[in-house]
Design a protein around this nucleic acid. Structure first.
Lengths: 209, 209
DNA sequence: GCGTTTCTGTATTGCATAGTACAGAGACTG
DNA sequence: CAGTCTCTGTACTATGCAATACAGAAACGC
């Protein structure tokens, strides 16, 4: 399956057009999260979104272009699922609530599916650099609240001044992704729990004395 | 793309047959690591392995069966790439050498590709339970030397007796996977470095006092 | 050697599916 | 209300590719 590198395709100008485009993206994002990129055809998307072939090619340059665009929508969904928890990660307690929420979400889902964005990495990261960059942006958006929270803690003197907020945040994101991956593959939410317990310990060790 | 659930297909009895089967698996494993599951056709495999269509269906029950089988081969390759480092993970120094080796490998590869097994998770984990189980077995094999090493350290009194070797090993594997995923998506081996620094700190905190 | 099993080569089939063509509905604009 | 732009519906084309059919070579057993 090698598809053409297709054009950007303009954004819709009318409200109706924007709604259609949104419906396409949400349907695609959902189907991909359920089945994986290569098990979703344009026909599936048409059915799920209730649109015709012409709309797909009106709003997107082709399948590859649609896939690139869907990364942002998936990121929206992932961040949305954590809503409230991501708002102010500027205390250890808030970070722990966030962690607990992530574990609880996996328990609710039966440890199925892993991280929708993380799963896209294995499927799309090496396709082209634009796609990889879109994934990187997704993680940036996810990590940003944590960076902000930790920075605020450091400013308030709750984190040691010599601690690297960037490194701590990266380490935490890695724990989340790795924990979710093992959770998925082992169908065991405790995998995420253990990974996050480790991250918590490292964060705590950076607390001011 | 929906393929039939195909049969197990017997193992070859002759040496020549085993060699052919091995060549098919290695070619498939390599191509998939480079391009991803859905960018590798049976025709590609035939070319790369120098076999005909009939061989593929002689040794495997079909495309899906080949994919399941290739998970083991990919695991072999990943463990092989760490050879020597995985042998005796029963001191902090050995574990650090292992971590350093993983980071060095990513630097050499330009942070491209991530973890071949981890990448398969996003592509195959939700296909069917047998496939997911094969991936789980791959991680089991990878984690086993660490569990053995940590157990040995605990037996020798270098780890606190109340520390959970299983949890520590799971946390470490999560750090590796998450670190590799971020390394791949950001094209930055320091992501793995930071994740492993975190794991190292947690392991060190379980050292006997 | 002869039959049987294992292994290999090639041509073909059938289907799923990405992409295209083209017409038409609806809305806004002067 | 005529003209233009955005949006939508459907039928069609082309092709990549998994799967099959079938024949033949090579090895092995008795």
């Amino acid at each position: 399956m090698q598809y053409r590198n297709a054009m950007p395709a303009q954004l819709p100008t009318t409200e109706k057009g924007r709604a259609t485009r949104r419906r396409i993206l949400q349907a695609t994002s959902q189907l991909i999260a359920e089945r994986g990129v290569d098990r979703v055809s344009l026909e599936d998307v048409e059915r799920e979104a209730g649109v015709g072939r012409s709309q797909l090619y009106h709003y997107f340059g082709g399948r590859d272009d649609l896939l690139r665009a869907v990364i942002d929508t998936t990121t929206d969904a992932v961040l949305g699922a954590q809503n409230g928890l991501l708002d102010e990660l500027d205390t250890f307690a808030a970070i722990e609530r966030w962690f607990d929420g992530l574990v609880a979400l996996q328990e609710r889902r039966g440890a199925v599916g892993g991280c929708p964005i993380g799963s896209l990495v294995g499927q799309l990261a090496e396709r082209d650099d634009q796609t990889r960059a879109a994934l990187a942006t997704g993680f940036e958006r996810w990590e940003q609240p944590l960076v902000a929270g930790l920075t605020s803690m450091q400013d308030r003197g709750e984190l040691r001044p010599d601690a690297s907020v960037e490194s701590l945040a990266d380490m935490t994101m890695a724990a989340i992704q790795g924990g979710l991956l093992l959770t998925q593959v082992r169908r065991d939410p405790r995998q995420l729990r253990r990974a996050l317990d480790g991250a918590r310990a490292v964060l705590a060790s950076a607390a001011a004395v």
